[in-house]
């Protein structure tokens, strides 16, 4: 079953007098349990495609369906709620909330969704354990290493059982040990829970572990290799 369907999507920018086609007629779908990587040189449209799939940006043509919902039909405030309920985000620079503890960061989206406190705490503990940071639940982001912060970010993204997780260059700021450890966790979640991961990366370590590698160039898909 397709979690994400991208049908002939275009995205152009008119920042200068010249029209820049960041995404140029992409048609693609992601199935539940995918561990897919979008690769390509800088400016190929990887991040733009991820933003479109995440509902952070609107295509100038074509349509995107997520779990059967047509994103173009949603109002801006509905899109925000949609992202909260269906999409998990992992960013390159972690983007944790500095004033909150690790546990509070993990529980942040559950808090937005008004989960009861007990249920929220149980899920938080479960996630912190699964990313190996149960003992650091009271630590602030500034007290954690980059790898640990990114693991907390993964736990936050997983908290409310999203349809899939979008990870934009998640290992770019990590040393190799931390990057491997993070990928181990993601892979495990993919295997054990069937969580769908869509990465955008330049990192060969991520590419090696991916089951599917989609190559973009000039906003077009030039290859889509499935390795399962």
């Amino acid at each position: 079953m397709a979690v994400v369907e991208i049908n002939n999507v275009f995205k152009s920018y008119h920042d200068t007098e010249v029209e820049v086609k960041a995404i140029n007629g992409v048609t693609l779908s992601f199935e539940k349990g995918d561990f897919a990587v979008i690769v390509g040189p800088s400016g190929s449209g990887k991040t733009t495609l991820l933003n479109l799939v995440g509902g952070l940006d609107q295509p100038t043509g074509g349509e995107i369906l997520i779990a059967g919902h047509r994103l173009s039909e949603l109002k801006p405030s509905e899109l925000i709620d949609f992202r909260m309920d269906h999409v998990g985000f992992v960013f390159q620079s972690y983007n944790l909330i500095p004033v909150l503890t690790a546990a509070e960061n993990v529980g942040f989206i559950m808090n937005l969704q008004k989960w009861p406190k007990e249920k929220r705490m149980t899920r938080t503990n479960e996630l912190l354990t699964s990313v190996g940071l149960a003992d650091r639940h009271k630590s602030r982001p500034s007290q954690l290493s980059g790898g640990q912060q990114q693991r907390i970010a993964v736990a936050r993204a997983l908290a409310t059982h999203p349809e899939f997780i979008l990870a934009d260059e998640p290992t770019a700021n990590l040393d190799s040990k931390s990057a491997e450890s993070l990928l181990d966790i993601m892979e495990k979640l993919n295997h054990e829970e069937g969580m769908t991961f869509i990465f955008s990366t330049h990192d060969v370590r991520v590419m090696k572990r991916a089951h599917r590698v989609i190559t973009l160039e000039d906003g077009k898909i030039v290859s889509d290799d499935v390795r399962k």
Partner: peptide, 16 residues
């Protein structure tokens, strides 16, 4: 600014 962008992207309404 970046933090505000992140909060809205992960699902925090702008009104909140």
């Amino acid at each position: 600014r970046r933090e505000f962008g992140m909060l809205v992207s992960i699902g925090m309404q702008k009104t909140k």
